[in-house]
């Protein structure tokens, strides 16, 4: 069995949240991605046993959604929005700056397994376009310069937990709107930080 007891315990807690076992499939795939940085075949076998469906049914779901990665990602997943609002606000130059800094093309990961770069469809931050997500934590109002600065910071400081507010304060520009609540939790893996499934991590500062 490839999952350790701690992970299995988390998995069972997630399964209990749903009336049917198979409904827990989505969150469990995030656990798998948290563990390996992608959805491994071993994890698929594990999940299929946990929720009583066949391996290929799990694979069918995991390969359908692009946020479940089929290949190893780097520590930091840079998702740059290319949809219309960002495009109008010059996301092209943000994309180019990331490409230039990392030397990566779309969906590529560098050799040190530090960065994975992808161009994505709308990430729901049109008011603060152009926007970027680092491990699904959103920064809005970026400029090419600020983007490079952010990449350098990630490369040099190697922060363990990425928190959206912190990124925004450091590198962001115009925000869609201000929630006025400080959010101290972020994500530590290439998985969105959800508190109810335990992928969100609190930043201590």
């Amino acid at each position: 069995m490839s999952w350790d007891n701690e992970l299995l315990e988390r998995a069972h807690k997630i399964i209990e949240l749903y009336p049917q076992k198979r409904s827990a499939l989505g969150p469990l795939l995030y656990l798998a991605q948290e563990k390996d940085g992608f959805i491994s075949d071993d994890s698929i076998v594990e999940i299929s046993n946990l929720v009583d469906i066949t391996e290929v049914q799990v694979k069918s779901v995991s390969s359908f959604y692009s946020m479940y990665k089929e290949e190893q990602t780097g520590t930091y997943l840079l998702s740059v929005c290319k949809s219309i609002s960002c495009e109008i606000n010059d996301s092209r130059s943000v994309i180019n700056s990331v490409k230039e800094f990392t030397g990566l093309e779309n969906y590529e990961t560098d050799q040190d397994k530090l960065f994975t770069f992808e161009e994505v469809e709308c990430i729901g931050a049109c008011g603060g376009a152009p926007a970027v997500q680092v491990n699904y934590e959103t920064v809005e109002g970026l400029t090419p310069e600020k983007t490079i600065e952010m990449c350098e910071w990630l490369k040099n400081d190697k922060p363990e937990i990425i928190v959206a507010d912190q990124l925004q304060n450091k590198f962001g520009g115009t925000k869609s709107f201000d929630w006025a609540i400080e959010d101290n939790t972020g994500s530590a893996y290439t998985v969105p930080g959800f508190q109810n499934i335990g992928t969100a991590k609190e930043k201590d500062n």
Binding site: I44, E55, V56, Q57, K59, S63, F64
Partner: peptide, 15 residues
């Protein structure tokens, strides 16, 4: 057997 991938890449396959 199930559909794997999506869009243009969709294919029937086994695990």
């Amino acid at each position: 057997i199930e559909f794997i991938q999506r869009g243009n890449k969709t294919q029937v396959n086994t695990f």
